[in-house]
Structures are given as structure tokens and as C-alpha cells.
Amino acid sequence: MSVLEAEVTIVNRAGLHTRPAAGLVKMCSKFLSDIYLSRDGFSINAKSIIGVMTLAAEQGSTLNIKAEGIDAEEALNSLIEYFKSGFGEPI
């Protein structure tokens, strides 16, 4: 089992609000790995929408992703892409 970590930045103007949070959780739930998101040491399970929204991540804030499991690499790559794309929202 591999444990992978990455730092990502929120690029879209509206931040990680309800819609992208839901998209994020949906994406994470497809993977078998345990995925955690953390901000300033406050770490939550990325498969929980309430948890993701608790981060209240605004534009410019950095989050740490940690994926642990057999498909950790795949999960991490799709998540990084999703963050980079600004969740398909105006930057």
C-alpha cells in the first residue's frame, strides 16, 4: 500500500464552495484509497462533504492531499487535475 501526498492551491475565485466540494467528494468516492485533505493541520476525510466544506478554503489557500491505498496514485493525479482546473469555474 502506498501513501502519497501533494500540495494543491485553490485557483477559482469562489473557492471550494458547495458545488466543487460535492464534485470532489464524488471523485474521491470512486477510489478505494483513504483520502485526506488538510489545511493548517486540520485534517478531514475527503469522502465526507461536510468535512470538505469545513475547510472553507478560499481562493489562494493551499491544501494538503494524502492518499493511502492501492489506487492512491491514480486518485492523487485526478485530484490534482481537478484543483488545477479551478473545478471548471472562472479563475
Binding site: S38, S43, E68
Partner: peptide, 11 residues
Amino acid sequence: MGIQSNLKPIM
């Protein structure tokens, strides 16, 4: 699985 494995205390 189950119990969160990255239990880092926040100080």
C-alpha cells in the same frame, strides 16, 4: 481502514 490513520494532533 476505519479509524483515520493520519491522526496528527493540532497544538
